[in-house]
């Protein structure tokens, strides 16, 4: 089986978010970029399946400019066999899905993180399945391959669900798909430099959404301390200021 793991290049989760151009663009100055945490877990599971002999090849795919290559190189160091980068600015989820549909046709399993930690769109995986005509299953927290059959675990309200599904399939994965993201070994880092980084041109596509502007959440109000004897004042504040009563 051949797996394509979709890799989003996102700002480190501890990044202090700023905007430029009158709040119309993300300010990437000084930002450290990482593999989207859900994608990293998906890749880890793919590597585990390959080590168990259930998968023959792992490809990682991304839509982005050359600046995303260090992130893809890390994915190769973790254990992917090759990378495909569609050389375009990822304008919106639809645009990204169109591009990935072009490169994702020949895979048995496509793994997409349930969302990317920057825009939290949760849209690419489903769109991609539709565009490719693949089966798709979301909120996947376990993926096993036994005798060529895909066995999937899903977390559902109050329990979990086990199902089998025919490939080709897009699995939209969440936490639990792997225990911890794999830390690449030095040998992996060394080998990554020799693995193929295939750069392909984008196909004609038009974004369906347009970013108007961003807003930061309002700064947290200062904490008000109420004397323990003064329950009345606490109730007044909860009622009149916090308006929760």
């Amino acid at each position: 089986m051949k797996i394509l793991v979709l890799i989003s290049n996102v700002p480190d989760t501890t990044t202090k978010i700023r905007f430029t151009g009158d709040n119309t663009a993300f300010d990437s100055t000084g930002v450290q970029w990482i593999i989207n945490p859900w994608d990293e877990l998906a890749l880890t599971r793919a590597v585990e399946l390959k080590e168990a002999g259930a998968v023959e090849k792992i490809t990682v795919g991304n839509v982005g400019r050359q600046t995303t290559e260090p992130t893809l190189r890390k994915a190769l160091a973790i254990g992917a066999d090759e990378a495909i980068r569609v050389d375009a600015e990822p304008e919106d989820a639809f645009f990204v899905a169109i591009q990935l549909a072009e490169v994702g046709k020949d895979f048995d399993i496509i793994m997409a993180g349930i969302e990317a930690s920057d825009y939290n769109g949760s849209a690419v995986g489903g769109m991609l399945a539709e565009l490719l005509g693949f089966n798709s299953v979301s909120a996947v927290s376990g993926l096993n391959i036994e005798n060529g059959e895909l066995i999937i675990n899903r977390e559902i309200d109050g329990g979990s669900q086990v199902l089998t599904i025919a490939s080709p399939v897009v699995t939209i994965v969440q936490k639990g798909i792997a225990k911890e993201p794999r830390i690449p070994a030095m040998r992996g880092i060394m080998m990554a430099r020799k693995k193929p980084m295939n750069v392909v041109s984008p196909v004609e596509a038009k974004a369906k959404t347009e970013m108007i502007n961003f807003e930061l959440p309002p700064p947290k109000a200062a904490c008000k301390l109420v004397d323990e004897e003064n329950a009345k004042e606490l109730i007044r504040l909860l009622h009149e200021e916090a308006k929760v009563l």
């Binding site: 290559e69 260090p70 890390k74 911890e180 830390i183 880092i189 060394m190 990554a192």
Partner: peptide, 18 residues
């Protein structure tokens, strides 16, 4: 280099996590 940076990030990640 890209490789040295990846080694730095990787070892930092290992040290912080484990």
């Amino acid at each position: 280099t890209e490789e040295q940076q990846l080694i730095k990030d990787t070892v930092r990640d290992f040290a912080e996590r484990e």
